[in-house]
Simulated assay, not measured.
Amino acid sequence: MKDKNLAKKVKGLRKRKGFSQEGLAEISGVSVRTIQRLENGETEPTGETLKRLSNAMGVNPEELMDWTLIEDKGFLKAMNLSALTFLVFPIIGILVPLIMWISKKDRLKDINEIGKSNLNFQITWTLMLFLGYIVNAIILGKEFYSTDVVLVDAVISSQRRLIVFFFVMYALNIALIVINTFNIQNDKKVFYQPTVTFIRN
């Protein structure tokens, strides 16, 4: 095969997507033997084979031909740190890293793992933040209608709960972003918890 890089690209992308050769063969309709020969550089893929493999792995044939797994820790750290924009407004802490992730998706080493982990956490964190605010408002409402609680005391208590809650939530988010930036620098796995998986692919 003249294009040795294509063999590496197909094999690398398959592994990045979590497919075995057998699994990719089953989904794409391309035989295992063809995939093996392609990845070993023994044959050149036909247009149809390239199209089937690209569709199975969720990329365009052109992207597969041009695809190179580049290591760029600087961009990964910047994408991770961009979540700190939640300090301006929580939704921005989702949008900025989302835009950065989409711009380089499947083109940088570890970008999908880091991007999805960060985004899933930021979405979860934002929902928890608003849920905590709502719960506190419900508690305040119950205290407001309680004959045993003075309104001023209820408001002060509500404010204290919100301050403590916001402090813990914001400190957790900042700490995880900073820790995971160091993890990226040191080639360690990122860790974001608690997280609900909203983004899978």
Rank of each mutant, 00 (worst) to 15 (best):
residue 30 V to R: 00
residue 148 D to Q: 13
residue 38 L to D: 03
residue 71 E to V: 10
residue 178 V to Y: 09
residue 151 L to C: 01
residue 8 K to I: 12
residue 128 M to E: 07
residue 176 L to M: 09
residue 161 R to P: 02
residue 12 G to C: 08
residue 105 K to D: 03
residue 13 L to E: 01
residue 37 R to W: 08
residue 16 R to K: 13
residue 194 P to M: 15
residue 15 K to G: 03
residue 176 L to K: 02
residue 73 K to N: 05
residue 73 K to I: 02
residue 46 T to L: 08
residue 98 L to N: 05
residue 60 N to C: 09
residue 168 V to F: 03
residue 140 L to N: 04
residue 175 A to P: 13
residue 35 I to Q: 02
residue 188 K to R: 14
residue 9 K to Y: 07
residue 46 T to I: 11
residue 192 Y to P: 01
residue 25 A to E: 10
residue 163 I to V: 07
residue 114 I to Q: 00
residue 69 L to Y: 08
residue 196 V to K: 02
residue 184 I to C: 00
residue 119 L to P: 00
residue 66 D to C: 07
residue 118 N to V: 14
residue 112 N to K: 10
residue 4 K to F: 14
residue 190 V to E: 01
residue 182 F to R: 06
residue 72 D to I: 12
residue 83 A to T: 03
residue 41 G to N: 09
residue 196 V to L: 15
residue 141 G to H: 04
residue 101 W to K: 04
residue 191 F to V: 08
residue 113 E to L: 07
residue 113 E to N: 07
residue 109 K to D: 05
residue 24 L to M: 06
residue 125 W to N: 08
residue 88 V to W: 10
residue 190 V to W: 00
residue 197 T to G: 02
residue 76 L to F: 10
residue 26 E to V: 12
residue 55 N to V: 14
residue 161 R to W: 09
residue 192 Y to L: 05
residue 85 T to N: 00
residue 23 G to M: 09
residue 46 T to K: 08
residue 175 A to G: 10
residue 153 D to R: 11
residue 163 I to Y: 01
residue 9 K to Q: 12
